[in-house]
Write a protein that binds this DNA or RNA. Structure first.
Length: 943
RNA sequence: GCGGGGGUGCCGGAGUGGUCAAACGGGCUGGACUUAAGAUCCAGUGCCUUAGUGGCUGCGUGGGUUCGAAUCCCACCCCCCGCACCA
């Protein structure tokens, strides 16, 4: 029979709320700041993914609170955004009303689930009291030159009718509606996040964030060290008249340049080809590339000759200049093409019949003595290497680079080869008779040298000629030794990179350079439901920031704007027309709004001081509560929100408003909830509504199930049946406590001595449980914690008929507290039933008491578990033979007799009459089994 | 292609050198209770063998290291996620 979870849960929701149980403020206690990425208030309310996310965070918050930390665990809503506006257009509702309604729905669901938020700190980004500070930060950035307006090619989504940030373009498609993104030349507002690229990269190392997120951010920032090299443009007479600056990370390949490629979107390209016979062709090519989408552009390498020629500063060779689709407007937008050592250049050279000049040679030569019978198997594995097998001498020569060397050696070891390394040349020998640990290394070397009769230079020449003879089918991109490179010939790539850079610098033809992949953050949006950008355009004064005292620039009501005619704010004359803050003359307001990712870049700071109208937040409070100690959200924010909020935090730090310069110490990205192996989605119709589950099982069961079914960061496969296991557990714990308090637990007749042993066992194992659950919570292994609690409770159930009620009450109390992070309602209810008047949620977290550990009893119990299995085995075997056993006789050695007696009840559940007798003096022993009794293993007789 | 994470029983999922035929939960089979169903409890749930035993097979596939491997190494196959021509 199910307990009345609805009644119990509603009761505690009310109690917590009335007592503001989870309200916090700055104090002397150590703090713990727990934040979940706040939700967008959609019309559907909370989905199961939110529920999982918040259940994890709430468990951590509750645990830390009970541990004595001053826990700040707030709640809020990311309330600006396109869906509200689209709903407005489609159903003619006010976005504000739509949003606040949705918030109300979500809020009630969150309350129903029992999350221990400090509700007094609730915020929503769509209210002027919040977005005023977005504008304030914008102006601060404007003052510092971190925000600027620029005409640039931008990503435009025709469906959403707005521009997008780079981070919002996924595979060339809009992140929201998946439409193909177009490139448009528009004048827009940018935040100079690139100024922070280095700092964003460097401080990543100190964060306790998932490695995957860090890697994604590093890649997104994409720092590359290289060299800019000047290639002079020359006319037919060989006179230079201009230059092209290329960027490369491999200056060591400079002598192998056979052409130059300029990106089609390079701003100087058209100017450069002006008047050339190729001008028209180049123009057409640029247009063609512009029309290509991402996939088409990547399909094959296309390009045209520009008619230009450039001079290689190292060789003075004149090489042609091309423009091609595979060169992107990254770094200088011009590359030096080295087809022998770059796969892209190689493919282009092949396609357009351009020369290929080799300048890097693999620097390691591996020689192996390989028996003919092994060679076939071995060479199959070597398909990625250049190699040659001399069948007469049984010698295998393999080219390797410093990077592929390890791989090659492993490969050869795999085939029983023995390595000997003389520094430059690796000798491998696949005859087991030559084990290096058996033969003196020197001897082996000499032995092999004689055998091989080689010297290094010969091998190099040999390999080089081998290479030249065979048609190259791919570029050699790894490092190596330079050849055909003038005074640099013979250097290793690493040496040459430095030497060539220095040489270029000395002749003024090159310089070190660092480029980043990350681009400035485009924040203008041609949409209504967002933060107005606090800028005014005056014919006389130009771009004028709105003065701080005039903030907020309030978003006009939806009824005052018209949708569907471009930028909605532009249709509201009372908004647009204003006066210039500088000259007081007529002026017009900026009608774009900010990307909503601005809103979410600092909300965790506003939680700390959400009613402040002087400042975004108070420094002292923020210094106390920051940084976030536990931040949880989806990994999809890895290169968006999670970079922006780090940037904002650093910027705010630079303003002197915050001691810290990183938002979150620890980040956890929860796994998705799947059904049938795929993510739940409306379009697939495989969604589970948390409210339905609550109706059937209650919030405690839902929460505990979500925490039990998988570790937080792992994918969780939803199994309706699986919930029932948790539901059973919650039910039986509740019934146990109620029965206990009504003295309704039926007791077995047991001696005091036996009761004492059982009490010790339960208490002893309880200490282990406390220690384990604590440990698991500290390390976010929530499912393990629940597993152990369930396992322990099973033991309690087994022995509750023997143990003393006062011990059981003690245990029930501890369990109630241990369960609080997972099933807070039943925790609170049971705590209360046990006679406590405080909130379990605010009690001190249990600590293990070592003095209650009793290794002897635990050992004895383990012995009984074994005994039980033994009896079962015997019973099963003789039952198969057609006998029906009714009694079992257990002959224990005298010192252990008490222990087995203590656990007699446990054995009685087997359905047999249990007789425990001293092995030394059994009352009944028809088959003389008693003599077999050993320590820890009593003898058994069944009949 | 590169980077990251995975492939374990009927299912979800633990386990990362021996204590593993494998936690915890679910399912299934048999038993107890019950007029019956449900709930609950007990037992079983790879194969063979056995008075509590012993053996074989088994953790994607194939090799290897080791006295000993689900766990370590190598290769291969498959799945998921991210990045994707960044010079």
């Amino acid at each position: 029979m199910a307990y009345d979870f609805e009644k119990i849960e509603q009761k505690w929701i009310k109690e917590w709320e009335q007592h503001e149980a989870f309200k916090v403020s700055k104090s002397d206690k150590p703090k713990f700041y727990c934040v979940e990425m706040f939700p967008y208030p959609s019309g559907e309310g909370l989905h199961i993914g939110h529920t999982r996310n918040y259940s994890i965070a709430d468990a951590i918050a509750r645990f830390k609170r009970m541990q004595g930390y001053n826990v700040l665990y707030p709640v809020g809503y990311d309330a600006f955004g396109l869906p509200a506006e689209n709903a407005a257009i489609k159903h003619n509702v006010d976005p504000e009303k739509w949003t606040t309604n949705n918030i109300a729905v979500m809020r009630s669901q969150q309350k129903r689930l029992g999350f221990s938020y400090d509700w007094s700190r609730e915020l929503a980004t769509c209210f002027p009291s919040y977005y005023k500070w977005n504008q304030w930060f914008f102006l601060k950035m404007f003052e510092r030159g971190l925000v600027y307006r620029k005409k640039a090619p931008v990503n435009y989504c025709p469906q959403c009718k707005t521009v997008l940030a780079n981070e919002q373009v996924i595979d060339g498609k809009c992140w929201r509606c998946k439409s193909e993104v177009q490139t448009k030349l528009m004048e827009q507002w940018f935040i100079k996040i690139t100024d922070y690229a280095d700092r964003l990269l460097e401080s990543l190392d100190k964060l306790d964030w998932p490695e995957q997120v860090k890697v994604m951010q590093r890649n997104w920032i994409g720092k590359s060290h290289g060299v800019e090299i000047d290639f002079e443009l020359v006319d037919e007479q060989g006179n230079s008249y201009d230059k092209l600056v290329v960027f490369t990370t491999r200056p060591d390949t400079l002598f192998g340049v056979t052409f130059i490629v300029i990106a089609p979107e390079h701003e100087k390209l058209l100017e450069l080809v002006k008047g050339k016979p190729q001008e028209q062709e180049v123009k057409e090519f640029i247009e063609k590339v512009q029309k290509m989408n991402l996939a088409e552009r990547q399909e094959s390498k296309l390009g045209v000759f520009t008619g230009l020629y450039a001079r290689n500063p190292a060789t003075n060779e004149i090489v042609p200049v091309y423009t091609a689709n595979f060169v992107l407007p990254y770094a200088t937008g011009i590359v030096m093409a080295v087809p022998a050592h770059d796969q892209r250049d190689f493919e282009f050279a092949k396609a357009y019949g351009l020369p290929i000049k080799q300048v890097i040679q693999p620097n390691l030569l591996v020689v192996a003595y390989v028996k003919p019978e092994s060679i076939n198997k071995l060479t199959q594995s070597l398909k990625d290497f250049y190699f040659y097998y001399d069948a007469e001498k049984f010698l295998l020569y393999v080219k390797a680079s410093s990077t592929s060397y390890a791989q090659l050696v492993n490969l050869l070891k795999q085939h029983q080869a023995v390595i000997w390394n003389d520094g430059e040349v690796i000798v491998l020998y696949n005859n087991r008779q030559f084990k290096p640990d058996e033969v003196q290394a020197e001897n082996l070397h000499e032995e092999l040298k004689k055998l091989l009769q080689f010297d290094q230079q010969n091998w190099r020449d040999f390999i080089a000629s081998e290479l030249l003879q065979s048609e190259m089918n791919k570029a050699y991109e790894q490092e190596g030794i330079l050849i055909n490179s003038g005074q640099f010939t013979g250097m290793s790539s690493a040496e040459a990179i430095n030497a060539i850079t220095e040489w270029l610098e000395s002749i003024g033809k090159g310089r070190k350079a660092v480029y980043y992949r990350i681009k400035d953050w485009l924040i203008s949006r041609q949409r209504y439901w967002g933060t107005p950008i606090p800028i005014v355009y005056c014919d006389k004064c130009g771009i004028v920031p709105v003065p701080y005292e005039q903030l907020p620039v309030v978003l006009p009501k939806a009824s005052e704007v018209r949708f569907g005619e471009g930028n909605p704010l532009a249709t509201c004359e009372s908004f647009v027309n204003t006066s210039c803050p500088k000259c007081n003359g007529p002026a017009k307001r900026e009608t774009d709004t900010m990307d909503t990712f601005v809103d979410s870049s600092w909300y965790f700071l506003r939680y700390i001081d959400n009613n402040n109208d002087e400042l975004p937040f108070d420094k002292e409070k923020a210094d106390y509560f920051m940084p976030i100690d536990f931040y949880i959200g989806g990994i999809e924010h890895a290169t968006g929100h999670l970079i922006y909020c780090r940037f904002f935090t650093k910027f705010i730090h630079d303003l002197g408003m915050l001691k810290h310069d990183e938002p979150a110490r620890k980040l956890l990205c929860q796994g998705m909830v799947t059904l049938g192996g795929v993510a739940m989605s409306k379009s697939l119709g495989n969604v589970v509504n948390p409210l339905d589950v609550i109706k059937r099982y209650g919030a405690d069961t839902l929460r505990a199930y979500l925490l039990f079914a998988a570790l937080p960061e792992k994918q969780l496969e939803w199994q309706e049946k699986g919930i029932e296991g948790i539901f059973r557990f919650v039910n039986s714990f509740y019934s146990f406590v109620t029965a206990l308090m009504q003295d309704a637990i039926v007791k077995y007749d047991a001696t005091d001595q036996i009761v004492t042993i059982v009490n010790s066992l339960l208490l002893s194992k309880l200490q282990v449980l406390i220690a384990n659950v604590t440990q698991y919570l500290e390390t976010y292994k929530l499912s393990y914690a629940i597993r152990d609690i369930m396992e322990y409770f099973k033991l309690v159930e087994k022995y509750k008929a023997i143990a003393s009620d006062n011990v059981l009450k003690q245990i029930a109390g501890v369990l109630s507290l241990l369960l609080n992070p997972f099933t807070p309602f039943i925790s609170e209810e049971c705590w209360h039933l046990l006679g406590n008047t405080s909130f379990a949620s605010l009690e001190a977290w249990p600590k293990p008491d070592e003095s209650l550990r009793d290794q002897h009893v635990e050992k004895a119990y383990d012995a009984v578990v074994k005994l039980r299995q033994d009896i079962n085995n015997i019973v099963r075997i003789i039952s198969k033979k057609g006998k029906k056993p009714t009694s079992v006789y257990i002959y224990a050695i005298d010192s252990e007799l008490q222990h087995y007696l203590a656990f007699k009840q446990e054995l009685e559940t087997l359905g047999l009459s249990i007789n425990i007798e001293p092995a030394s003096n059994p009352a009944y022993d028809p088959q003389n089994k008693a003599g077999k009794a050993k320590q820890g293993r009593p003898a058994i007789y069944v009949e």
